[in-house]
Design a protein around this nucleic acid. Structure first.
Lengths: 187, 187
DNA sequence: GTAACCTTTTGATCTAGATCAAAAATTAAT
DNA sequence: ATTAATTTTTGATCTAGATCAAAAGGTTAC
């Protein structure tokens, strides 16, 4: 999906504003396993994924690498609380495939908001989407079994299951690799 | 906490805007166990709690009542995705104590945003806070033990532990009542 | 091409927390 | 107050999923 279609599906904007947004998001490429945002730092950038796969992850108290979330084509990628709130990020972002993205800096984003006030709606709509996903996640983790969580991911994001590694998917689901491997085996 | 201090702690606003906000939030009282928002309907109201305790909850596939979240003095209470996005709510809201609140309707909220554009910041800041809480929740549910989740709730919201019922707290933590009772017993 | 390194699978065992059931303690209602 | 209803505790048992360990498959690099 193109950035322009993404924006327009949220809210149709004037041609002028659309062009301004298009120009503010500059193309970037990342190869596999690059770190785009680091824990402890304030996210200065937000990415729109045109091609590729990435994940947000963190290390728990015992140092285990845990995937918080996956992002793929047509999604806005950033540690939302850090970017929108300009707070230190508690997560890292890593590319899992070679990626083609568009990125905007926070400064440019603020500028857009100031010059084209209609983009403010894009911001709250964006926040709303992050929130919707997060609440879904909570409900999933609160009371579903490992199998049910896997089925749900399969249903909602089948491509992630094919493209991400077993270990990353397992920690995302809140289970061990072994358990995920067994769930897959018996189907 | 007063509504005015809540607003000002987010962002200092002009006296004019402050007064407009104060007037838009009208006082309401609820007695224990009243339903403020119902699953399937669009949340037309957002509440600021001056006194009392409430919870957001839902019924899972097997019909079990699950607490999604608690809200107490000084918090904004609403099903954020439903109120801000004007989408059907997937949750209910129930008062758990006699409550004194201030409420604003979505229409009045929109009006405020239009007349006093600086309130738009309050909106995104509000969304951001809901998002921050939600991400915390995910990390908690992803890999902490029952005991660790309980300790965390105790640390962050000790008053909820004293005021909410065992069953509500247990489902909030994603565990059974029996397990929670045993965790408490051994301390 | 094979050595070194990851990732996934399979097996055996263990345990945190669920489930089922019933007793005790609180709270509410007449 | 006494009964009824709800909530919490305690006990016994069971199970989903963790942990530990090692084999089997895949990748990557020289």
């Amino acid at each position: 999906m193109q950035l322009s279609s993404y924006i327009n599906q949220i809210l149709p904007l004037s041609d002028l504003t659309n062009t301004a947004i298009e120009n503010a998001f500059i193309p970037v490429k990342f190869s596999k396993t690059q770190i785009l945002i680091t824990e402890g730092k304030i996210s200065k950038e937000m990415f729109f994924i045109e091609k590729g796969l990435a994940r947000i992850y963190y290390y728990n108290e015992s140092g285990k690498d845990i995937t918080y979330s996956f992002f793929t084509e047509g999604m806005m990628l950033t540690v939302a609380e850090s970017f929108f709130g300009q707070l230190p990020s508690r997560y890292n972002i890593e590319s899992l495939e070679d990626c083609e993205m568009r990125k905007i800096t926070y400064t440019d984003f603020e500028m857009l908001l100031k010059i084209y006030p209609e983009t403010e709606k894009i911001k709250s709509q964006g926040l709303l989407e992050f929130l919707l996903k997060a609440t879904d996640r909570i409900v999933t983790l609160q009371f579903l079994s490992a199998q049910e969580r896997y089925d749900l991911l399969m249903k909602n994001y089948p491509s992630i299951i094919q493209r991400a590694s077993l270990g990353h998917i397992a920690s995302y689901l809140g289970i061990t690799q072994e358990t995920l491997s067994r769930i897959r085996a018996k189907k």
